[in-house]
């Protein structure tokens, strides 16, 4: 299906950061939800950032240093709290500080459909 923002090769043009920030998460994430990457992804790492590529959907995702930190924690075994705790230990910050910094990143990844919830082996979104 064509999309007004669709590029000639079928890739969507990048959403503007402003627009991405303006869109609040549409659903509240249960505290117990564990996150997993729900695509076959090729990661091209440069310095402390990365570009993720999904060959199936032919979509790319830019991950700045913060986003890449979060992305690496999304392995299907951690929920929000576990991710923030891990990052807080890495950064020497409180969990609240880390949560306020990284929660929007997690929400943006979910909104763009790169991560989904798991309960055990069953992916529910």
């Amino acid at each position: 299906m064509s999309h007004p923002e669709q590029a000639p090769e079928g890739r969507r043009r990048p959403a503007s950061p402003t627009r991405a920030l303006a869109e609040p998460p549409t659903t509240r994430t249960p505290e117990t939800t564990r996150w997993r990457i729900c695509r076959e992804v090729i990661i091209h790492r440069i310095d402390d950032e990365a570009v993720a590529y999904d060959p199936g959907a032919h979509e790319v995702l830019y991950l700045d240093a913060d986003a890449f930190e979060v992305f690496k924690q999304v392995d299907g075994t951690r929920d929000d709290a576990a991710i923030f705790l891990e990052l807080a230990q890495q950064h020497g910050e409180t969990t609240d500080e880390v949560a306020s910094r990284f929660a929007p990143v997690l929400a943006a990844m979910r909104r763009h459909g790169w991560i989904g919830r798991t309960h055990g082996a069953d992916e529910v979104s």
């Binding site: 700045d64 986003a67 929007p104």
Partner: peptide, 14 residues
């Protein structure tokens, strides 16, 4: 030179 401010929200899809 690296950018002083990372682009927010840190993730951008295309």
């Amino acid at each position: 030179t690296r950018p002083e401010e990372p682009v927010r929200p840190g993730v951008e899809a295309a």
